[in-house]
Computed example of a mutant assay.
Amino acid sequence: MKPTSSSIALLACGGTLDKDYNPLTGELVFSQSCLAEMLQQANHQLNIRLETLMLKDSLEMTEQDRETLYQACLTSTESAIIVTHGTDTMTDSAEYLLARTEHLKTKTIVLTGAMRPFKLSQSDAMFNLGSACLAVQLAQPGIYITMNGQLFTAGQVKKNRQLGIFSD
Score class of each variant (00 low, 15 high):
residue 1 M to R: 08
residue 2 K to F: 03
residue 7 S to W: 05
residue 8 I to Y: 06
residue 12 A to R: 00
residue 12 A to S: 14
residue 18 D to K: 05
residue 18 D to C: 00
residue 20 D to F: 09
residue 21 Y to A: 08
residue 21 Y to S: 02
residue 22 N to L: 08
residue 23 P to G: 09
residue 24 L to M: 12
residue 25 T to M: 05
residue 28 L to W: 03
residue 30 F to K: 01
residue 31 S to W: 03
residue 31 S to A: 08
residue 31 S to Y: 09
residue 32 Q to M: 00
residue 33 S to H: 05
residue 34 C to M: 14
residue 34 C to R: 14
residue 35 L to D: 08
residue 35 L to R: 11
residue 35 L to M: 15
residue 36 A to M: 07
residue 37 E to Y: 13
residue 39 L to E: 04
residue 41 Q to I: 06
residue 43 N to M: 12
residue 47 N to P: 03
residue 50 L to D: 02
residue 53 L to Q: 06
residue 54 M to I: 03
residue 57 D to G: 02
residue 58 S to H: 11
residue 60 E to M: 13
residue 61 M to Q: 12
residue 61 M to N: 11
residue 62 T to F: 08
residue 63 E to P: 01
residue 64 Q to N: 11
residue 68 T to Q: 15
residue 72 A to E: 12
residue 73 C to F: 07
residue 73 C to G: 00
residue 74 L to C: 07
residue 74 L to S: 10
residue 80 A to R: 11
residue 80 A to L: 01
residue 81 I to R: 12
residue 82 I to E: 01
residue 84 T to R: 10
residue 85 H to S: 05
residue 85 H to Y: 12
residue 86 G to C: 09
residue 86 G to T: 08
residue 87 T to M: 10
residue 89 T to R: 12
residue 92 D to W: 13
residue 92 D to S: 13
residue 94 A to T: 03
residue 94 A to Y: 05
residue 94 A to K: 00
residue 95 E to R: 04
residue 96 Y to N: 02
residue 97 L to N: 10
residue 97 L to P: 12
residue 98 L to V: 05
residue 98 L to D: 06
residue 101 T to Q: 14
residue 102 E to M: 11
residue 103 H to Y: 10
residue 104 L to P: 04
residue 104 L to D: 02
residue 106 T to P: 07
residue 108 T to Q: 10
residue 109 I to T: 09
residue 115 M to A: 01
residue 115 M to Q: 14
residue 116 R to G: 08
residue 117 P to A: 04
residue 117 P to H: 04
residue 117 P to L: 07
residue 119 K to C: 12
residue 123 S to K: 06
residue 125 A to L: 07
residue 125 A to M: 10
residue 126 M to D: 12
residue 127 F to G: 11
residue 129 L to R: 05
residue 130 G to A: 08
residue 131 S to A: 09
residue 131 S to H: 05
residue 134 L to Q: 12
residue 134 L to S: 11
residue 135 A to V: 04
residue 135 A to E: 03
residue 135 A to Q: 01
residue 135 A to P: 00
residue 138 L to E: 08
residue 138 L to W: 05
residue 140 Q to C: 06
residue 140 Q to T: 14
residue 141 P to H: 02
residue 145 I to D: 00
residue 149 G to S: 10
residue 152 F to Y: 13
residue 154 A to T: 05
residue 154 A to Q: 10
residue 155 G to C: 03
residue 156 Q to W: 05
residue 157 V to A: 15
residue 157 V to D: 00
residue 160 N to V: 09
residue 163 L to M: 12
residue 167 S to F: 05
residue 168 D to N: 14
